[in-house]
């Protein structure tokens, strides 16, 4: 039986510990500056500057999210468990009446609060611009985008905490986290495109269905699909995912389920590993 007060105590401790992290402040600052810059100059390739509607801004900010939010999530979570082990605080924590499930859940919730605030603050400046210039539809679209970005952060926090639960040191945890970040953000889509190009889309087993389904195996792609699926008028602004317009991967229910899977599957796996972990 989970004791919510115990979970919230650990969440608060995790929150306070992480919010003081200087690298988090630097990343939030970068996110804020870049989001502001993108909201103004994101359409410069087409010869325009200034605010040109919420969809253009969101399409540009999505790329920023995909690079920075998983990175912030990994920086927050990579040493959440291994750090306690290396610092020697884990034995006392485990000897308290808190169960391992409560400790794990508490840590995840604390990190979720931190990343939610980071994303709100980071995208807040652009949000003010949209609030002042956009209509109600624009505001809803922007909040949908922020919500999707938070889900992206939460899914990577969940993955980061999983990594932290099965590794034994900060070094191995950060190494695996950086690899995963690089893999999901840079390599995975390149691999998919590479396969499509190499087979010229002719191979029997490489069709839009397979490629679409493969995109669901990458949380950053799920984020892209989720955002363009839920924000009306965004499809035209986005590259690879645009070709999947109307395909099954843009189904709302499928995307919600997939997102939930990307959050809860690593969470349950991590909690299970932490439960079994021996010291």
């Amino acid at each position: 039986m989970i004791n919510l007060r115990v979970v919230l105590t650990i969440s608060k401790k995790e929150f306070i510990g992480r919010i003081k992290n200087i690298s988090l402040f630097i990343l939030i600052f970068i996110l804020a500056v870049l989001s502001f810059a993108i909201s103004y100059f994101g359409t410069s390739p087409s010869g325009l500057t200034g605010f040109h509607g919420v969809n253009v801004t969101i399409a540009s900010l999505m790329s920023l999210s995909i690079y920075l939010i998983p990175l912030i999530a990994f920086i927050l979570s990579y040493d959440s468990i291994t750090g306690e082990e290396e610092d020697g605080t884990m034995p006392l924590l485990l000897s308290s009446s808190a169960s391992r499930s409560e400790i794990y859940l508490g840590k995840l919730i604390g990190l979720i609060i931190v990343i939610s605030i980071a994303i709100f603050v980071g995208y807040g400046i652009s949000g003010i611009t949209i609030l002042s210039r956009g209509n109600v539809g624009s505001i809803i679209s922007y909040f949908t985008f922020i919500f999707a970005s938070i889900l992206l952060g939460v899914s990577f926090l969940s993955i980061g905490l999983l990594v932290s639960s099965f590794t034994r040191s900060r070094t191995s945890s950060i190494t695996i986290s950086v690899f995963l970040w690089f893999f999901y953000v840079f390599i995975y889509d390149l691999l998919l495109i590479g396969i499509l190009v190499a087979t010229k889309g002719q191979a029997m087993f490489i069709n839009n269905t397979v490629i679409g389904a493969s995109m669901l195996l990458n949380p950053t792609d799920v984020y892209r699909l989720f955002t363009i699926s839920f924000i009306h008028g965004l499809k035209g602004y986005y590259g690879l995912t645009s070709i999947l317009t109307g395909r099954f991967v843009l189904d709302h229910f499928l995307l919600i389920v997939t997102y939930i899977m990307w959050i809860f599957l690593p969470m349950f796996m991590g909690a299970f590993i932490f439960h079994k972990k021996r010291y």
Partner: peptide, 27 residues
């Protein structure tokens, strides 16, 4: 009640905050 071989606490907490933290974990 347990004391490990090497005792480590959260450095950013004070003594009384540490007591409160572990107190809350024990309801």
């Amino acid at each position: 009640g347990y004391i490990p071989e090497v005792v480590h606490f959260y450095g950013n907490l004070s003594g009384i905050e540490t007591m409160e933290f572990f107190g809350k974990l024990n309801n």
